[in-house]
C-alpha cells in the first residue's frame, strides 16, 4: 500500500504521522489521512479543497501538477510526500 508522509515542519502545528493507506489515487490517500487527522486538512488544502499555494505533493519524488483533483494513480510501495514548496535561501 502507498505510504504518506509529511514535512517535519508540519509536526510543530498538527499531528501528522507517517501512514500506509489503502488507496489507489492521491485523492483517496489524502481522504484517508484527513479522516483520521481532521485538523491536518486545513494545513495542506485551502478552503476550496486545493493544495495551499506554497505546498507541494510529491509521488516518488516527482511533484504532481494536479493541485485540486489529485487524481494521480498510486500503487503499492509508492511514496507520497507532502511538503512546503520552499524557494530561495
Amino acid at each position: 500500500m502507498p505510504k504518506v508522509s509529511f514535512t517535519s515542519n508540519l509536526r510543530r502545528h498538527v499531528d501528522c504521522p507517517e501512514q500506509v493507506v489503502a488507496a489507489s489515487t492521491v485523492a483517496e490517500a489524502l481522504d484517508l489521512v484527513f479522516s483520521q487527522h481532521p485538523r491536518l486538512k486545513g494545513y495542506v488544502l485551502d478552503d476550496q479543497g486545493s493544495l495551499h499555494r506554497h505546498m507541494a505533493i510529491l509521488v516518488n519524488g516527482q511533484a504532481i501538477r494536479d493541485r485540486k483533483q489529485f487524481a494521480q494513480p498510486v500503487e503499492d510501495h509508492d511514496e507520497i510526500f507532502i511538503m512546503q514548496a520552499l524557494s530561495g535561501g
Binding site: 495551499h52 512546503q84 514548496a85
Partner: peptide, 8 residues
C-alpha cells in the same frame, strides 16, 4: 498566517 499552511 502560516504562509505555507494557511490562515488559522
Amino acid at each position: 498566517n502560516h504562509g505555507h499552511f494557511g490562515v488559522k
